[in-house]
Design a protein around this nucleic acid. Structure first.
Length: 542
DNA sequence: CTAGGGTTAG
């Protein structure tokens, strides 16, 4: 670097005004070549040694460099703090830097507050969106709103939209966001979309939809907000039908497309919806669309493809995309592991995890990874291995188990008939056991014919979920299997009195563009005989 | 120099 600087100081050969102009050109160019803090310090020493009038300009460049290239906000702040009175550009640069690093987001607001207290420099309307992006405190939007009104920027659509967005992200803030939205004189497509996303985040899909219907104009992000809202709230087929509307709205009569065509964000959501609904054919079409339109295979898209193919049962395709994806993030690994687990590929799921482990601290597993692993172990009946993973998760990785992890563990132990250990786990849980936990235990009791424990599980289940008759029906079946008909009659009578009917389990699969749907104990499919013949042969083979 | 949209688990 010293050598580089030696040859890269053209301003030393010129004097006066032209030397300053050269500095303005060459400092950014020098910064582009630098990649380490030490190199930056050399430039800094040179600049501040000159003590010229444009200190603020160069400090601005250096702060931005610290934030964007080095991610060293503390050093950026030191440069900032050396200035006697930083101008609005410096405050904006420093606040933007903090706001874009989640772990520093509270500093963004604190620095803004300092600026307001000093009353110098005066804020401009550009700074508010940056300040609001940090979202450190729930009351922050209110405070900033007050400042905005006082400083006279209250009617700037961009500032209002940033405020609206900030309100809508704070808990129970959608109503405040809506008030602001209703008061706005000038609403842009961005304001509408921000409001829709606010509704989406609290699961108010009805409000989101009706606002979307009323929008005077729509662009790609507004369609995406609605489609993403559907997938994030579990309305997967709805998401796909909105995708179809989007496509037909973007297709003119001559069959050519224009306007709001699906982009990378749209297809990432749509692929997720395809995975959840098993819509393999559409998923493949979307894959082609991605390739035809040269949409970049970024993390979101490649991971969504892995997930879609995996969930639809095309594990070879999923694995192919996973293997060809050079840049993988945690979600890539998790998607692959979870898909393999879903289809009972225990050995492969574990081997993908072990490959992931070779990256050490560069690719640490999280909660979702362990859900996949525990599911894989349950499918494969690897009780001890599953227990070891659970142990490693809490002990080695310091991950607090979710209720889902306990659900997997109880499922694993219950299927293996290890009821004593299962009860121990339930007793030691820091979270209140839910119906999944007792349901998993009950399932284990059914497999192993443990009536007493089944009674306990059912009583807990009825407490937690009184309207669901399925548990009682399961208990009745269990008595039936053991020939205890008196007990069967008793349970059925209670079920009838409580008017609790079993909601049947339902699954479906798409084969050759045709959807086949099955309820539990369902004999209505036209090829039922063949299906059950194959099923029985599979059971025999197992 | 400013505002809205994305993947995994349940």
């Amino acid at each position: 670097m010293a050598r580089m600087l030696h040859y890269q100081r053209p301003w030393q050969q010129t004097r006066g005004a032209s030397s300053m102009a050269n500095l303005h050109e060459h400092v950014p160019r020098l910064l582009e070549r630098c990649s380490h803090l030490n190199q930056l310090k050399q430039i800094q020493a040179l600049l501040f040694g000159l003590a010229h009038a444009d200190t603020q300009f160069f400090a601005f460049k250096l702060v931005r460099f610290c934030a964007l290239k080095l991610s060293d906000l503390d050093y950026g702040r030191r440069i900032f703090d050396h200035l006697r009175s930083p101008n609005i550009y410096l405050y904006t640069a420093m606040i933007t830097a903090y706001a874009s690093h989640p772990e520093h987001s509270s500093s963004a607001f604190l620095l803004y507050r300092d600026m307001v207290r000093r009353a110098r420099p005066r804020p401009n309307h550009f700074i508010y969106p940056h300040v609001l992006k940090s979202r450190s405190e729930p009351l922050e939007a209110d405070i900033v709103h007050g400042h905005v009104l006082k400083s006279g920027f209250g009617q700037y659509p961009v500032v209002q939209t940033a405020l609206l967005d900030s309100y809508s992200r704070s808990s129970s803030g959608v109503d405040s966001a809506r008030l602001l939205f209703d008061e706005m004189h000038e609403r842009t497509v961005v304001s509408w979309t921000a409001m829709i996303s606010g509704y989406v985040r609290f699961g108010l899909m009805g409000d989101a939809m009706s606002l979307f219907e009323k929008m005077p104009e729509r662009d790609v992000p507004s369609w995406n907000a609605l489609i993403a809202g559907c997938t994030q709230n579990g309305f997967f087929s709805q998401a796909l039908s909105i995708l179809r509307s989007m496509i037909s709205a973007s297709t003119s009569e001559d069959g050519k497309t224009r306007g709001n065509r699906p982009n990378a964000v749209t297809v990432a959501c749509a692929l997720s919806a395809c995975g959840h609904t098993g819509t393999l054919q559409l998923g493949k079409e979307i894959h082609c669309y991605i390739l035809r339109n040269g949409l970049a295979l970024d993390f979101y898209i490649s991971n969504a493809l892995i997930d879609m193919y995996g969930k639809c049962g095309s594990l070879i395709e999923a694995r192919g995309i996973f293997d060809r994806t050079v840049k993988r993030n945690l979600t890539s690994w998790n998607s692959m592991i979870n898909c393999l687990a879903l289809h009972g590929q225990t050995r492969q799921a574990i081997s993908v995890f072990e490959e992931m482990m070779t990256f050490g601290v560069d690719m640490l597993p999280d909660e979702v990874t362990f859900i996949g692993l525990l599911n894989a172990c349950t499918h494969g009946g690897h009780v001890e291995r599953g227990q070891a993973y659970f142990e490693a998760m809490t002990q080695d990785y310091g991950i607090q188990p979710w209720i889902e992890h306990y659900g997997c563990l109880i499922d694993l132990l219950g299927r293996a008939g290890k009821f004593e250990e299962a009860l121990q786990v339930i007793g030691a849980m820091k979270i209140q056991p839910d119906e999944v936990i007792w349901g998993s235990l009950l399932n284990g009791c059914r497999v192993h014919g443990d009536i007493d424990l089944a009674e306990l599980a059912v009583s807990k289940l009825i407490e937690l979920d009184p309207d669901n008759g399925g548990y009682g029906a399961m208990l009745a079946n269990l008595y039936g299997e053991q020939g205890k008909w008196e007990e069967v009659r008793r349970v059925r009578k209670t079920l009838k009195e409580r008017d609790a009917y079993k909601t049947p389990g339902c699954s479906w699969v798409e084969i050759n563009n045709q959807l086949h749907q099955f309820y539990s104990v369902d004999l209505t499919h036209p090829r039922t005989d063949e299906i059950y013949t194959v099923l029985e042969s599979l059971v025999d083979a197992g």
